[in-house]
Write a protein that binds this DNA or RNA. Structure first.
Length: 206
DNA sequence: CCATGATCATTA
DNA sequence: TAATGATCATGG
């Protein structure tokens, strides 16, 4: 059993800034494409390997105390901005109903996050350089967190009142409850960080 | 089969 | 371009 602290994970990752993740994928034997389709999770898997988390493919409520995330960045008018929203964690309807924000997995993951900015080279890109690595600890009395908690409460209330099916990506100012799942009719939901929030995280984290 | 990694496709 | 919903490979 190997324990990798957050500081160590960051240190490990920083060594790879500027590297092309596609090459590392081969080295680790991670599939990036198959039958012309992309494995959308390959970057995340590689990052986890690089950080030293060799066996982290399932959810991690127990074990490590931080969350490793990658975010795609692209240029819009010569400015670097997050390309998309960032998945935070799956929504468990039961837990959402019974726990408040500071007891949720959502908060547990958000408050102690290690993020990796990855360059986005267009759809189905075969390369992706690691741009930057950072970490961030949120405080419970942070103004931003208060607003995020309000979003969480809103979503939670909606769940109680209208049911799980009523949740949509429109909910929330900083975080949203978007659909996500294996596909093929089976869909579940997850918390996503909106782009504005991703930007904030980077600003604070740097 | 489904949760998790995160991106792709479609519409406005 | 932005926003929302749908989807894919992997591993247990």
């Amino acid at each position: 059993m190997k324990i990798v602290t957050r500081a160590t994970a960051i240190k490990n990752l920083k060594k790879y800034i500027g590297h092309d993740l596609a090459k590392l994928a081969k080295k680790f034997g991670i599939t990036t494409y198959k039958n012309g389709k992309q494995n959308k999770g390959w970057k995340g898997l590689i990052l986890e390997r690089l950080a030293g988390l060799e066996c982290n493919v399932s959810k991690a409520p127990n074990g490590l105390s931080y969350e490793l995330k990658s975010v795609a960045f692209r240029y819009i008018k010569d400015k670097l901005v997050p390309k998309e929203t960032m998945a935070i964690t799956m929504i468990n309807p039961q837990e959402l109903k019974e726990h408040d924000f500071f007891k949720s997995h959502c908060w547990a993951k958000l408050k102690s996050i290690v993020f990796c900015a990855v360059m986005w080279h267009g759809k189905n890109a075969k390369k992706a350089e690691l741009l930057e690595v950072g970490s961030l600890d949120f405080l419970e009395d942070d103004d931003l967190i208060k607003e995020i908690r309000a979003d969480y409460d809103f979503i939670r209330k909606k769940l109680t009142k209208y049911g799980f099916e009523s949740l949509t990506g429109k909910d929330g100012k900083w975080i949203q409850a978007r659909t996500k799942g294996p596909g093929h009719g089976s869909t579940s939901r997850a918390f996503y960080a909106r782009k504005e929030l991703v930007k904030k995280i980077f600003e604070i984290g740097e």
